[in-house]
Nucleic acid binder design. Structure first.
Lengths: 233, 233
DNA sequence: CGGCGAGTTGAACGTAATCAATTGTCGTGG
DNA sequence: CCACGACAATTGATTACGTTCAACTCGCCG
């Protein structure tokens, strides 16, 4: 069972809908688990056997074609919920982009618990609605934005979400951060190739909008201009 | 108020979660409304004031950039739910693609009712999860599929969803149907231009996979081959 | 120091976009 | 009923953006 009392995401994850003794009951159903970078938690097409909360780290949700093309359809950060509750097979795989820690439940146990806790379901519904909005924004990016707009949008998005995931109450976003993915994964998320990602990053660097101290780090030097590029004015 | 007893979608819409007197109570909050083709029910960015069930017709959810590019991020059919419950502004506009009829609620009235009816919320959650899965599949299309794969996927999808929306218990899909949108809207949904849509349809016609009796009709002559193209083997 | 994987850079290519002209369809009024 | 105009769709020619293929660089660990 999980020790919810000391969980770092207990106030932000869906668990925050519960009163202490409900939380204790849920905790009994879950267990904390480490997932190392590259490890796959759920395979695309498999029956949905588990759901989880992300405690730390970043994971991707991805879909593949038979001939090997991949599209990342979601990225989850600490306090986000993973999985497909209430039956069905998982239409996407879940793989750790960084070493991560999750609080994992069997789907059936979680489903049963959720059915009897409307507040939990309500939180889950709100999260799912938010996730849907985010997915739709990303559809705009994939369908209509140019390569440079896509890269700029991604950098803003990661900066924002890492800022929100961090516990700092003041920073709504980060101006320096570590990319939780490599170039290939950026391409899979943006619908671009690795080469195009690289070229666009170089262009932003040469325009002095960002710096790239090393291959995983980004410094946003001119957020205003980056946002202008991202929103495709 | 709406006359739920005779509503054609009462067994498929989220209302099916309710027992008769609950249904009557919800019916008092809603009213049926006609929406004619092209009419916009909700504007992108506006505060989310209403939600609704689709009774008949087809509507689009769409997002635009400042410079006028548009991406359709969802298409709703009879029995589907429209809107963004529980606060927030609507991140997309809702516009009728065909003449339509909806059962409309003010958001606050619906939210209040939903809070006290966990079964309704549960149905809504399931629908939202399904919608999210569909959005993610579409992200794969937008990010990684070629023009011909996109067109084939769209035709299959419309065939399936019109089949499911129709009341025929035997037809899982239709082999002849009316497109609920014009070429421009197909492009906005697929992330393509109008010209590319037209060319790809012509190619499918010349390959004798489909027929195009008139500009709004499609006959699928060889569904197997169409599916092969769609799934990007 | 050597070798490997990730990333960058370059050159050629190809798919879909853009620009432009034509055809087709529908609704209206003569 | 047909002629007309407006708009939707198709078709063609050209362009451009991102992909593909290929060579090279960098950083890291043995």
């Amino acid at each position: 069972m999980s020790d919810c009392d000391t969980c770092v995401v207990r106030n932000r994850a869906i668990c925050s809908a519960l009163v202490p003794d409900e939380l204790a009951a849920l905790g009994k159903l879950g267990r904390k688990q480490m997932v190392s970078r590259g490890q796959t938690l759920v395979w695309e097409g498999d029956e949905s056997l588990v759901v989880a909360n992300v405690i730390q780290g970043v994971l991707k949700l991805s879909v593949s074609t038979q001939d090997g093309r991949e599209q990342i359809v979601g990225v989850v950060f600490p306090s986000d919920f993973i999985g497909r509750p209430f039956g069905k097979e998982s239409p996407y795989g879940v793989t750790a982009l960084t070493d991560a820690e999750v609080c994992i439940f069997t789907r059936t146990a979680f489903d049963g618990f959720a059915k009897e806790h409307p507040d939990l379901q309500h939180k889950l519904l709100q999260r799912t609605l938010d996730e849907l909005d985010r997915a739709r924004q990303w559809m705009m990016l994939l369908g209509r934005k140019t390569a440079s707009e896509r890269i700029a949008t991604l950098l803003i998005e990661i900066s924002d979400r890492l800022g929100a995931a961090g516990c700092s109450p003041i920073a709504p976003f980060l101006e320096k951060f570590e990319l939780p993915m490599d170039r290939q994964q950026m391409g899979d998320l943006l619908g671009l190739t690795i080469e195009t990602v690289s070229r666009q990053l170089t262009k932003l660097k040469e325009a002095e909008i960002i710096e790239l101290p090393d291959r995983r780090s980004v410094v946003i030097k001119d957020r205003r201009r980056l946002e202008n590029i991202a929103t495709a004015a």
